[in-house]
């Protein structure tokens, strides 16, 4: 993976894999309509997002790279979980303790960068009165 270059399409369709390890070029129409694919089979993988993060950083946008690295951490979470976390980060939705727990949960599940973002938010929300 690491030696792939941007863009990944069309050259790297055999090497790029979905969240469950299916190669992009294996996802043919026949496979797609055979009911053999679940939603995770057609979800982007953390590896691909880290690869794209590297392209963004080498292209001179470290913030986009960081966003894609956070995204790579979030691949493992369900849609409902992400919607819940987002809701917790909105203004005056969570107490400082709840944000601490959220950071801890993210951290435990391998989302260090996202956990750091939540810790940062917690400090600012407390200082600016945006805590529930």
């Amino acid at each position: 993976m690491a030696d792939l270059s941007y863009p990944l399409s069309p050259g790297a369709r055999a090497q790029v894999r979905s969240a469950t390890g299916k190669a992009v070029d294996e996802i043919t129409l026949d496979v797609a309509v055979s009911d053999a694919l679940g939603p995770r089979d057609v979800a982007v993988s953390a590896d691909t997002l880290r690869l794209q993060a590297g392209f963004a950083e080498r292209g001179g946008n470290p913030q986009l790279g960081e966003n894609l690295r956070r995204a790579a951490e979030l691949v493992a979470f369900d849609d409902d979980e992400l919607l819940r976390f987002y809701e917790m980060l909105r203004p005056a939705r969570s107490s400082a303790q709840e944000l601490d727990s959220l950071a801890a949960e993210l951290s435990e599940r391998g989302a260090q960068r996202c956990a750091e973002l939540v810790r940062e938010a917690r400090a600012v929300y407390v200082r600016r009165g945006l805590i529930a």
């Binding site: 979800a43 995204a71 992400l82 939540v118 600012v124 945006l130």
Partner: peptide, 22 residues
Amino acid sequence: FVDGDDTPWSKAFLASCYASRG
């Protein structure tokens, strides 16, 4: 920003949510 029911951190997290789904 707060009237819009968000903060820079919630928006940054949302940005990552979108990217996490490609």
